[in-house]
Simulated scan of single mutants.
Amino acid sequence: MANNITIGLKHELYKACEAIMQAKLLRIKTTITELQQSLNSETKSSAGDKHETGRAMVQLEREKLGQQLAEIQKTIMVLAKINVINTTKTAGLGAVVFTNRANYFIAISAGMLQVHDRIFYAISANTPIGQLLMGKSVGDHIVFKGDPIKIDHII
């Protein structure tokens, strides 16, 4: 059974990741809406080819944003699988891993987070460091970019 401090830390890390993803989602959706409005408001000018080229470029941008939106939604689904109440003895999705080099929250790639006056790196299990940490236990060692890293604690 996890204690309240552990649950609080994991919950805050989770909420920080969630806020980052919601901000990205909002940015992409806003840009898609703006592009759609631009596309809808454009009228045919006397320079027909120029108009069609502009529309094609806007359409390509929309497609690119659509792919980014799909990726963000997929990442949000991964985040939703994390149970912040559970603790574990091995590093896996949702684990907070304390090492002699850095602290990691294995969830999504969201970068550096500061919680409880400590720095954590939110990483995906698919990142190189995430792959090295997955399945490891307290006391295990890994080597990342030539640096030896010892796992001190996992929650």
Rank of each mutant, 00 (worst) to 15 (best):
G92S: 06
M1A: 11
K50V: 03
T53Y: 11
V143C: 12
N83F: 10
T33N: 14
K74R: 14
T75M: 01
I5N: 14
I142L: 15
T87A: 09
G66I: 11
E52P: 00
L26G: 00
S46A: 11
S41I: 03
E42M: 14
H153M: 01
L113Y: 13
A110I: 00
A19H: 11
E71Q: 09
G135A: 06
D147L: 00
Y121R: 06
G111S: 05
G66E: 14
V58K: 10
G66Y: 11
K150D: 04
K150S: 08
I76S: 02
Y14V: 04
C17V: 02
H11T: 15
H51A: 00
G139N: 08
D152V: 10
I76Q: 02
D49Y: 13
L25R: 07
L26P: 05
T99W: 14
I76K: 07
T53G: 00
N4W: 08
E34G: 07
F98V: 04
C17E: 04
M112K: 12
E71M: 02
E42K: 07
H116R: 09
D140Q: 03
T127D: 04
A16I: 00
L35N: 13
H51P: 00
R55T: 07
D140S: 11
K145T: 08
I85C: 10
P148R: 10
E63R: 01
A91L: 05
F120C: 11
A80P: 05
L39R: 07
P148H: 13
G48T: 07
G130N: 05
S45T: 10
D147G: 05
A47M: 07
Q131Y: 10
G8H: 08
L13M: 01
G48H: 09
I82R: 10
V84P: 12
N40G: 06
M77K: 09
H153R: 12
A102L: 04
A102W: 04
H153A: 05
N4A: 09
H153P: 03
K74H: 05
K29S: 04
V97A: 14
I28H: 09
I85N: 06
K74I: 00
I129E: 05
T88H: 15
L79T: 07
Q67N: 04
M21S: 06
A110P: 09
D49C: 02
V138I: 14
I151P: 13
A19C: 03
T75E: 02
M21D: 04
I28G: 02
P128C: 03
A47G: 03
H51Q: 02
K64H: 15
